[in-house]
Design a protein around this nucleic acid. Structure first.
Length: 451
RNA sequence: CGGGGCAUGGCGCAGUCUGGUAGCGCACCUGGUUUGGGACCAGGGGGUCGCAAGUUCGAAUCUUGCUGCCCCGACCA
């Protein structure tokens, strides 16, 4: 992509209202535009990153056996009356009326609707287990939206719902999602720690929040140091092996890891002092089992092996891709801008032409641009006639993994400069070597994060 | 929902106290000189000063009401 053909409205100074670093950087890098409190347009660069996040989430859901559907954003109030939540949900639910004065609502979540889909079609335990998910915009009329897309009113959420005949198989379904979340966040290039969460009235141990550590996180977290470096299951993990999956969850939940809400000081004291990590975290995922909370009142029943109907056991599993984008920035940036994990970077390479209009430099850039694209690399070619400093600043700001810098001075020696955004390392090498380094990186990256 | 703050070209701000018809930096347009870490010179375009009433000869400025947005706290993917 040539920058001169792209739409990348960057800002030198962030608007005053943006306080936290991810919000400031998203505005400055031209990723989002605020339209109202907690409501944003996604501009090309931001959309590109969010789509990559979404795709990784999707692939890992599919791998774990979940099946994608798409439910509407607008729902009828009737369904919510069945579960009793139409009255319970309160002002956070955006209620609207259609032209026939029928009460509708903009969905804050989809338990009711998915339960309705399930009960419409599934009659037998033989069709279980079943896990349906979708990735759709939600609206929650937060009292105080803040921090940009981190706590917006409108946000994108992947929500999966599992259906099982009994508690044991529901637990297995929960564990599969647990493991798929480990893999998802690993592929997103970030360490997300599962933490025991409040299960509410259902009780039990089946609710976890996944938190990314970042100084600006909203929750205080306490965990054992070894939670930060545990090996994540590979893409070949066998989701059909319940014992194996349970073992992974067992391993990941054996160490102490809790948010301030669930913190237990007595247990905390049992952790060796050197192993205690106290930090701040951003909640990016939440999974829980809720049994028959919706299936019972809504009549989602299936026939068991004995021919008798039983209400189905359910769980739900959420990840907010729009929030994840901001959380990744919170977790990875420096004074100059964003430092994207390779797997979600909007481009792989910023190709910087230091002297637009110079015949040899232009030609070298066009050649490199074509070659890199042929190698499967996504390149943003800065072909504008801005000065070098401005181009460097822009490349640093948008944070793509590599900067390939081409100018007449280097070209005289047959050299270009390759800079790694994360490490800051740079080297002057031949065009051929630069292509090789980038090609090798792409292959490694695909192997590491490609799933 | 309690507490605090802000609203003036696209962005950042000054001007408001003490009323006299709007200014600076960046960005943008034209021309020229430049070009390896956010250039320089010259010229230029763009603002019903959040909205509505009121006071006044005259309101960005004073008064009243409203709206929007942000921050802190209680709640949430």
């Amino acid at each position: 992509m040539r920058l001169s053909d792209y739409f990348l409205p960057t800002l030198k100074e962030a608007p005053r209202e943006a306080e936290i670093v991810s919000h400031r950087l998203m505005l400055r890098a031209g990723m989002i535009k605020q339209q109202a409190a907690g409501i944003y347009s996604w501009l090309p660069l931001g959309l590109k990153v969010m789509r990559k996040v979404e795709q990784i989430v999707r692939e890992e859901q599919n791998r774990a056996g979940a099946v994608e559907v798409l439910m509407p954003t607008i729902q009828s109030a009737d369904l919510w009356r069945e579960s009793g939540r139409y009255d319970d949900y309160g002002k956070e639910m955006l209620r609207i009326e259609d032209r026939h004065e029928r009460p509708m609502l903009f969905g804050p979540t989809n338990e009711e609707m998915i339960t309705d889909i399930f009960r419409s079609y599934v009659r037998s335990y033989k069709d279980l287990p079943l896990n349906l998910y979708h990735i759709q915009w939600k609206f929650r009329d937060e009292v105080r939206p803040r921090f940009g897309v981190m706590r917006g009113r409108e946000f994108l959420m992947k929500d999966a719902y599992s259906f099982d005949i009994d508690e044991a198989s529901s637990r297995a379904a929960y564990y599969r999602m647990f493991v798929s979340y480990l893999r998802t966040f690993d592929r997103l290039g970030v360490t997300a720690i599962p933490m025991r969460a409040d299960t509410g009235p259902i009780g039990g141990d089946l609710s976890h929040e996944f938190l990314i550590l970042a100084d600006t996180g909203e929750s205080e977290v306490f965990c054992h140091a070894n939670m930060l470096s545990r090996a994540v299951p590979g893409s070949d993990v066998d989701y059909s092996n319940d014992a194996l999956i349970a073992g992974i969850v067992e391993d990941w939940t054996s160490g102490y890891a809790r948010t301030d809400e669930m913190h237990d000081n007595e247990l905390w004291q049992e952790v060796a002092e050197d192993d205690r990590v106290q930090a701040r975290g951003i909640e990016v995922g939440h999974i829980f089992h809720f049994g028959t909370k919706y299936s019972e009142p809504m009549g989602a029943k299936v026939a068991g092996p004995d021919g008798k109907d039983v209400p189905v056991q359910m769980g739900s599993y959420g990840i907010g891709p729009s929030r994840v984008v901001a959380a990744l920035i919170e977790a990875s940036h420096d004074d100059a801008g964003i430092i994207w994990p390779a797997s979600v970077a909007p481009f792989d390479v910023s190709l910087i032409n230091l002297r637009q209009g110079d015949e040899a430099t232009d030609a070298a850039c066009v050649t490199l641009h074509g070659d890199l694209m042929t190698s499967g690399l996504d390149v943003l070619y800065d072909d504008t006639d801005n000065r070098a400093g401005g181009k460097f600043a822009l490349a640093d700001l948008i944070g793509v993994p590599w900067q390939l810098i081409v100018g007449p001075r280097g070209l005289k020696e047959g050299k270009v400069e390759l800079k790694n955004r994360a490490s800051g390392e740079r080297e002057e090498i031949s065009m051929e070597s630069a292509r090789n380094v980038l090609e090798t990186w792409r292959v490694d990256m695909r192997a590491r994060y490609g799933g």
